[in-house]
Structures are given as structure tokens and as C-alpha cells.
Write a protein that binds this DNA or RNA. Structure first.
Lengths: 197, 197
DNA sequence: GTAGAATCGGAGAGCTCTCTCCGTTTGTCC
DNA sequence: GGACAAACGGAGAGAGCTCTCCGATTCTAC
């Protein structure tokens, strides 16, 4: 996806270098500014004409996906790896906290897991996309197992948890203080834990 | 604020009628579409030229504030009224749930309590505004009292709770299912409750 | 009914954003 | 070094937005 130099002839050396640079700058720009950053601005920061950037990535979304999809896939893979962990509760809470923590450090990841900010483009995780389904399914499996083990309230659905995740990330993006998401996740996790009384 | 017919001569009858209609349509539009709705669109829905709407409200923000500030003030007043309630925990959790519930039914209120969505204009609750301070202070007092009464975890700050509030509203705006915010608030409140173990 | 003030309507200025087009520059291969 | 394809740069088209301006219309007072 975005790798249009796989089948056809290889890119010219300068073009490949420039493509890498665009990706790197876009990565930084997305992390600090989120999905609302403009294409022009990324080109400017990278020191290229906007036409050059479009040559490598045909749309704004294509560039953003090239930068971000891999990150989400990692979350899905992590969840799958934890699907047989010994302590199901620990696996679930740990995964949740890790996703929040990593996304909190990256505006664009927040925007993306947040369902695509109203403002920015819909990237990657729009409802119905394969990746969104995978993410939801992976989360659902971890949750179900933790519930069966009695570690998480039985009345929570996967969608509830996804909403809670979004909520945590919102805190990070909006709050005046950094670290809001992680703090919030703590409270959330307490709320999710199965009551013993 | 927006009431420019208070001191000077009264508005002509048709103008007053039109002003009311603009407010009503804007109210509906904001509730359903949030702060990102365009001024042109509101004028179109109301059946007026855009110039007419600008005659009554000099900027987009002025119109939005005319519609929304009263709602926030109500929340602040409610909190003040509860400041001497018998059951401090009940007062706090009840107020929190009520704010979430009401805001959840109104996109623009969500956007606003959310600190002004990145996209839309900053309306009313921008940090440092009097209303934002009032809101924060009212929330802080309810919280402190509930904590003194042992009903809420002692380690939560007012900012934490404001973040949690934002998080709930995010769920409402982004989730595919309506009612996400209220659901989330339940989990939150459980997480906020002081541990008895 | 009429004069004159108040109000309305909407074209358009000016901005930002995405994306295209094509003349200019650069890399590659001989 | 020269020829030619590949890649670059950035002006500008086109769309959407906020807000202004002023001729056309409507209300009100007499």
C-alpha cells in the first residue's frame, strides 16, 4: 500500500531518497500535529514542492496511511500474541494500557483510533475497513477471555471498550496536561475490573 | 453578548422575528452537526441570505455563543446549587451523569466541553475564559466535597475529572452507537468511586 | 400613500486547502 | 559528454469557508 515501486522498475536513486525523506517528515508532522496537518505544510517542512510529494503519494490519505497503518497493525499483532497468555486479565489490561500509552505520544494515532477526527481525512480505520475489523476482533477476543477469567466486568462489550479507548485518547489530545490519557486509562481500568463485592 | 438590541432602539418587528428564527435554526443545526457546521449552511437552512445572518451576529462565534453559553451556565448553576447537598457523593456523580447525558444529545455542546474541537471555532470555553474558570471551579468544589466525604478516590484532580468528562462525550460523538457516553460514564463513575478494599 | 430608515440578499473578495499540469532540472546509461 | 527518461517545482484550477458591501426590498410613522 503506497509501495508502487515493488512490481515496476525500481525508483531512481534520488527519488527513493526523497520518498524516504517525505515519509520521515510526514511521520514527525503527523505525530506532532495530527491528521489535520495540510499536505502543503508537509511538503514545505520536507523542503519539496508539493508536486513532488504528490508524485510519491497520490492523495493525502495515501501518504497518511503509508505512515500510520503499520502502527495499527502492530497493535493488532500484539493483541493476537496475547490471545493465549496465561493471565487473561493482565493481558487485556496490559494491552489496553500499552495502546493508550503509545497512541498518546502521537497525535495522528489518536485521531485515527478516535475514528478519524471530524476534521481530518478518514484514514485507515474507517468503520468497515479490514483493519478496523481486525482491530475490533482482536480487542474483542482479549476482552472475552478476560471476562471468562472473571477479571473484567461481564457487561462490557467490545464496542464499549473501544469507546473507552477513544475517550482516553481524547483526553490526551485536548487536555492542557500531557499524560492525561494514561491517567485516564488507570481510572478506566479500575472501572472495568470485575467487582468483588 | 449578542444582545445588541438592549440599549439602542428596538429592532424592527420583522428583524426580531428573523433573529429568533436564526437562533432556532442555529440551535438545531448545532445540536445535530456540531461546531464545524458552516455559517452559509445555517443561513441556507434558515432560508436567509448569509448577509442577513451576519447582520444579527457579527461573527460565527457570536452566533454560536448566543446559542450555547446559556447551556454551559446552567451546568455551572446546577453545580453551585449542589454545593451544599446532603450526600456529597451522590451530588457529584449525579451532576457528572447529568452533564454527560445532556451534552450527549447535542453535538455542539460536546465539541464545546471538549475544549473546542480542533476543527471548529473556539467558542466560549476556551481555556482562561471566565466561563471555563467558573465551570472548572464548580466542578472542583463538587469533587472536593465528594472526596472529603470519602465517596470519590482521593487522588483525582479536577482536571482529571474534566478529562474524563471529555472522554465520555467523545464516545458519544464518535461511536457508531448512540448512548455511548452514558454507558461510558457508568464505567467511569465506578472507576472514580473510592475503593473499599 | 409616501418618504425615509431599517433590513435583506447574495455576489464576490480574500483566504486555505487539495490536487494537476507542464516547463525545467537531474540522474542514468552508453 | 550527450541523449533521454525520470523526477522536480510551483503556479494555478477549483472547491469551500468567513465575512463585506451595497443595490433592492420592506417596514413604519406620518
Amino acid at each position: 500500500m503506497g509501495d508502487d515501486h515493488s512490481a515496476a522498475r525500481p525508483l531512481r536513486a534520488d527519488a527513493r531518497r526523497n520518498r524516504e525523506r517525505v515519509l520521515q517528515i510526514a511521520q514527525e508532522a503527523l505525530a506532532s500535529d495530527g491528521l489535520t496537518i495540510s499536505f502543503d505544510e508537509i511538503a514545505r517542512r520536507a523542503g519539496f514542492g508539493v508536486g513532488t510529494v504528490y508524485r510519491h503519494f497520490p492523495t493525502k490519505e495515501a501518504l497518511f496511511e503509508a505512515v500510520l497503518l503499520g502502527r495499527i497493525e502492530r497493535f493488532v499483532a500484539d493483541a493476537r500474541a496475547l490471545a493465549t497468555a496465561e493471565d487473561a486479565g493482565r493481558a487485556f489490561f496490559g494491552w489496553f494500557a500499552r495502546v493508550v500509552e503509545q497512541a498518546a505520544a502521537n497525535q495522528a494515532l489518536c485521531d485515527m483510533l478516535d475514528g478519524g477526527s471530524q476534521a481530518g481525512p478518514q484514514v485507515g480505520l474507517r468503520p468497515g475497513s479490514t483493519l478496523a475489523d481486525d482491530f475490533g476482533a482482536a480487542l474483542g477476543r482479549l476482552l472475552a477471555r478476560a471476562q471468562r477469567a472473571g477479571a473484567v466486568r461481564a457487561d462490557l462489550t467490545g464496542r464499549d471498550v473501544h469507546d473507552l479507548l477513544r475517550g482516553c485518547l481524547t483526553a490526551e489530545r485536548r487536555s492542557l496536561a500531557r499524560g492525561g490519557a494514561v491517567r485516564m486509562a488507570e481510572v478506566f481500568c479500575d472501572g472495568m475490573r470485575a467487582r468483588t463485592y
